[in-house]
Design a protein around this nucleic acid. Structure first.
Lengths: 110, 110
DNA sequence: GATATTAATCGTATTTTTGCGATAAATAAT
DNA sequence: ATTATTTATCGCAAAAATACGATTAATATC
C-alpha cells in the first residue's frame, strides 16, 4: 500500500504524468526558466538563483534529468545543464494534444 | 524541513507547478481523459473505469478539484464531474507559453 | 419510516518527496 | 603535491502522497 499502481495505467498516461511530475515543484519550474533564458547554465549559476541549498538544487536537477527534460554535460570542473530539445518537444506535443482534446460542447452538466 | 518553500518562488511558477502536480499521477491523467471523452461523468462511472478503490478515486478527484481543473455538481444522489473550461484554458495557455518560450539556438553547450 | 445507494471523509500503513548538513569524488588552481 | 572549487551522494528528519477498508452523511427507493 502507498505505492502508485503504474502498471495499471497506459504507457502514455504514465509518460505524461512523469513529465507533469517533473514540473510539479516551483523550484523545478524556476530551474527550467533559467535554462530557457540562458540556453545553458553551469550548475552553480542555478544554485545562486534559487533560494535553496546546493544539495537540494542538485536533487531537483537530478529529477529533471530523470524525466529527460534536461541534460547535463560535464566539462572539467563544472556541469553544464540545458533543455533537452527532443524531450521538450515531445512533452510539449503530448501535453498540447491532451489539452486540445477537450472542446466545450454545451453541456451535459456542470 | 521537508516542506516546499512556496513563498520563495513566483506566483506564476507556483501556479504552473500546481497544475502540473494535479496531472502528476497516471490515475489523474486517466480521469481527465474520461471527463474529456464523456464531457461529464458521475463519480461512480469514473470509479468503474479505474483500477482503484472508491475512496482512492475520491481522493484523486478531490485533488483535481483542488487544482481547479475540474468541478463537480451535486445532483441528488450523485456527483457529476466535468472539466472546468476556464481553468483548463488557462492551464493550457500558461503551459504552452512556458513550452514555447524555449527555442533552440545552436548552442552554448550540451 | 426503513433500507439501499452514492460519494466524502477518517484512520492507518506505506512510500515518496522535500530539504539540509556533511561527506565524497573529481577537476582546477596554486 | 597541496589546496580550493564544484557537484553528487549519503544520512537523516519532516512532510506529503498513495492506497484502502470502514464509517459517515446524504439522497433515493421501497
Amino acid at each position: 500500500m502507498g505505492a502508485t499502481k503504474s502498471d495499471e495505467f497506459s504507457v502514455r498516461d504514465n509518460r505524461i504524468a512523469a513529465w507533469a511530475k517533473a514540473m510539479a515543484h516551483p523550484a523545478r519550474v524556476a530551474i527550467l526558466r533559467v535554462l530557457i533564458q540562458r540556453q545553458a547554465c553551469i550548475c552553480g549559476d542555478i544554485v545562486d538563483e534559487l533560494p535553496l541549498s546546493q544539495s537540494t538544487v542538485s536533487q531537483h536537477l537530478k529529477e529533471l534529468k530523470g524525466s529527460g527534460l534536461i541534460k547535463g554535460d560535464i566539462s572539467g570542473n563544472t556541469v553544464c545543464y540545458c533543455i533537452d530539445e527532443f524531450a521538450w518537444e515531445q512533452a510539449k506535443k503530448e501535453l498540447h494534444e491532451l489539452f486540445t482534446s477537450y472542446t466545450v460542447m454545451r453541456n451535459k452538466c456542470c
